[in-house]
Amino acid sequence: MGYSPHRSLNELYQKESDRVDICEVIEPAFPRVDAAVCLVASNEYAPFASVVIQSIIENAKREKNYDIVVFTDDMFLYNRERIEAQAKELCNISIRVMDITKIIENLNFYTWAQFTPNTYYRLLAPDLFAQYPKVIYLDSDIVVNHDIAELYVTDLEGYYMAAAYDTHVVAYCTQTPPLEQRAYNKETLKMKYPEQYFQAGIALYNVTLLNETFETGYLIHEATKYQLKWLDQDLVNMLFQDKIKRLPNKWNVMIANVPYATDEYYLPADLRKEYYQARLDPYIVHYVGKAIPCFAEDPDLYEFFWFYARKTIFYELLLQKMCQKNTEYTSMPHVHELYRRINELETALAGSAAVPKPSLKKRIKALLMPIFNLFFPKGSNRRYRFKRSYFRLRGWEI
């Protein structure tokens, strides 16, 4: 009997779940592993994980062995099989998609905005890769443009992990005057050097040292105790102070949603120079904050993403996502309602001779901001896109 189109996706997943690999301690896929790589991906992000893996494959060396494992708690079987099939003709690359549902089913994590509990699952990597000396963790919103095995050989003696600076957050701390992020790093995270804040989306974990220092499950359970601004990334910066080796920025070139207004402009001169040089030959491009080219209105360094995306089975689906994103915004009913209210209020207030021009703007803002903030939270991509659309409607430039 076939699946009814009216069944929920969760029901479909449950039907498939008895046919997937349940994740326990992972055994190496090769006698000699030249790069062990861990990703986390939901079913929604399966196409993006596929692009990451394809980018690793395209830059891999034939004489090296690459052991790739994807953690998931909801990926459908057909997407798992598509991802694993990317290496079916390659004897030096292993791809396994493994279910971590039983490991995290009783854990609760703090989230906000676009973040999901999936971001915490990378903290499982040192536990589940206990049979390996090291493991590289990669977010699913990146592309690798270099041989990942070169990152794997990084010397980690005395360090829990290696990572690049989070150039966005560092810029928040180093601009004049600094944003509240600097005080947060000092007061909440207890960082001695608040400007030395690392990005956890690309990280090389020293599995041996971590498992010698912490009990199994320590990191993932510790994460349930906090409500931190940048979630598990804050936790790692807090717990691993002085034990994180800085990677060159080329291993994590962070991309902004607004390429002509990058946070990196506010970096100290040496770090700013390193960032812009890394953009010329990025080893890893990181499309943070929904800056993936099929979502972003003004995609930055998009050519790297599409070069690898078009080589995956998900290419047409990614194009569809891009088309949906471009039409979704202007078709949202609340956007049209907000436009209507703006026009009505401006007409009514402009007709009152007793209201001077400055007060007009203040009254419009006071009336609109509650509903505006409800549908378009501060800092969200939706808010930015609305502002651009509204200003263009009015014939203004931004």
Rank of each mutant, 00 (worst) to 15 (best):
N206G: 04
N211M: 06
E212I: 04
E212N: 11
F214M: 04
F214E: 04
E215H: 07
G217W: 08
Y218S: 08
Y218P: 03
K225Y: 06
Q227V: 01
Q227P: 02
W230M: 13
W230Q: 10
Q233I: 05
L235H: 07
L235D: 09
L235S: 07
V236Y: 03
N237H: 05
L239I: 13
F240Y: 06
Q241S: 09
Q241N: 07
D242N: 13
K243C: 06
I244Q: 04
R246E: 15
P248E: 14
P248D: 15
N249I: 13
K250P: 02
N252I: 08
M254R: 10
M254Q: 14
I255H: 02
N257L: 10
D263E: 13
Y266S: 11
D270Q: 11
L271D: 09
Q277V: 02
R279L: 04
I284A: 01
I284P: 00
V285I: 05
Y287H: 01
V288E: 04
K290M: 08
A291S: 14
A291Y: 00
A291T: 05
F295I: 00
E297T: 06
P299I: 02
Y302S: 12
F304Y: 15
F304K: 03
F305S: 08
F307Y: 13
A309W: 09
A309F: 03
R310V: 06
R310M: 14
I313G: 12
I313Y: 13
E316P: 05
L317M: 13
L317F: 14
Q320C: 12
C323D: 15
C323Q: 15
